[in-house]
Each structure stands twice: as C-alpha cells, then as structure tokens.
Design a binder for these strands. Structure first.
Lengths: 135, 135
DNA sequence: CAAAACAAGACAAATTTAAACCTATTTATC
DNA sequence: GATAAATAGGTTTAAATTTGTCTTGTTTTG
C-alpha cells in the first residue's frame, strides 16, 4: 500500500550517494550502480529523469557522469518523486482531471484531494540533507 | 506516484455508500455496483476484504448483503487501505523486514520510515464521517 | 426446494514495472 | 583523427501486479 517504485528508490539512493560526495564531484552511473548494487541500465534511466527535472547535472564523454544540480538542502523527496514517477495522484479522478464513473454521487473528492496535498507536503518537507543526517 | 489501487477506490466508495444509509440497512453488492458503477465481482472481493478487517458485516442468504460493522466515525481511510491493500510500506525494505541490497551504506532508512508513519497518520486522521461531510 | 446472496479459489486478461538491448552522440586522451 | 568511456534515448522483452471473470460451494429466506 502506498509504495514507491523501485526506480524511485534507485534515484533516491543515487541522489543521497551524490550528496555524500564533494559538490563538484562527477560520478558515473557505473560506479553508482556497482557501489549501491542494482541494474546499471535502469539506474541510468532514473538519472536521466533526475537530470530533466533539474536535480542532477550530466557531464558527457570520457570522465563524464552526474553531479547534483543544487544543494542537498534544496532537493526534497517530493522533487525526486515527481522527477521519476510524475505528479502525485492518490485517486484516478485526481490524475484524470476529475473524470470518474461516479462523479454524480461522489462527495468525498475534496477531502481526498486535501489528503493528497498533505501527503505531498510531508514529502516536500523531507530534504536530502535530512536523509543524510539520520541514522 | 503514490496512488491507491482501483480496488481501494471501490472499497472506499462502498463504505461511503453504506455510511449514507441507515446503520442497520443491509445492501447487496449488486445494488452497490449498479448504483456506483463498476464490476460487481471485483467489488465483491473488496467487500470480503472489508469484512475480514472488521469494517463491514455480511449477511448471507436471501435478503443478505453488507452493512458497516461500526460507526463511520470509527472507520478511517487508513483502516480501509490496510483492509484492502495491506500494511503501508513506502519502501521495499519496509515490507521485507529491513532486507535490502544496500543495507551497508544506507543512511536514510530511519527518516523514510518516519515519513511512512506520518503518511499513515494522515490517513488515520481521515474518518469516513469527514468524507461524508465534505463538499 | 428454489432463488438470492455471500465465500472463496482458480483462472485469464490487461496493465504496469523492471530490465535489457541497441544505436547514437559527446568528449577526453593518446 | 582514432579510440574508448560515458551519457541519450528509443525499442523491446520479461516479470510482476492488478483487475476482472468464472466456477463451485454455502447460507438462508420464502
């Protein structure tokens, strides 16, 4: 229930991994996937998502790789989620623009939408820095 | 991202539907599925989950059906989620008892676990009654 | 006993997720 | 300039999960 995708987990770990390095250090997908221990190709996709979302920066060519685009203080779990899985949509009617087979009788949409926003707020309050500090 | 299953949506709607009736009214799955507008057989499965979780009560035989087992005040979105989708597990390591391929270097588990609990608290604060009142 | 309804397992279809594959393009280095 | 290391990104395959159906059984009222 309410779980995130494996791709999200990969991306999250990669961001935390990068956050532990020097800010300017460029790390290859290969290194990250070996160090952390999962599919290189699949992590590469997650990194591309993170790049497009402005969370990571890529450097092409030999000695290339990725580094964070901004401070770990300014990257939240919500940002990573949106980058990799898209906008949060608790219910289908949230994703599909209010369309739903039971629109007529449904009274609980406003409340559920609020719940959706509150959940996202929790994710948005969790920065990568806070993940680094825990343990 | 972070969406609930269709089965959960069906179950939620059914519970709200029952909550609008008189407390002792027994309603068939057929009536609910026709009224609300989705697969009768599939809703039946959701109702069985709700029954096993002590949220609904079934009455077998002719004139049978379901009614709520308790007040809409005492049924939360979290209860319904657990009944239908099981315990909330944001990450795999939460579901699989801490096991994860990157245990060694992972520093962010405690924080993510807290996040998971906070999300569940939000769901647990949302009663079926609050859903009825909204709009 | 017949019909209406839940119970529950097995099966099938559809969708989503995860992973692999392949061909580019970029770029440092020799 | 050739080569090798790396990202870019599209296509396809495979696995897993979700969704839905089917079938058989049980309960209960009339």
């Amino acid at each position: 229930m309410l779980k995130v995708s494996r791709k999200f987990e990969y991306g999250l770990h990669a961001v935390v991994f990068l956050a532990r390095k020097e800010p300017e250090a460029v790390v290859t997908v290969k290194e990250m996937s070996l160090e952390i221990g999962f599919s290189q190709e699949f992590l590469a996709k997650a990194m591309q998502n993170l790049k497009r979302a402005g969370i990571a920066v890529s450097v092409q060519g030999v000695n290339g790789g990725y580094r964070l685009a901004k401070s770990p203080d300014d990257i939240t779990v919500s940002d990573i989620g949106r980058a990799i899985e898209g906008e949060p949509h608790l219910m289908r009617c949230s994703a599909e623009n209010g369309k739903c087979e039971i629109q007529a009788t449904c009274t609980h949409r406003p409340y559920m939408f609020m719940l959706e926003r509150r959940i996202d707020s929790l994710l948005a309050d969790t920065t990568v820095t806070s993940l680094l500090l825990s343990r």
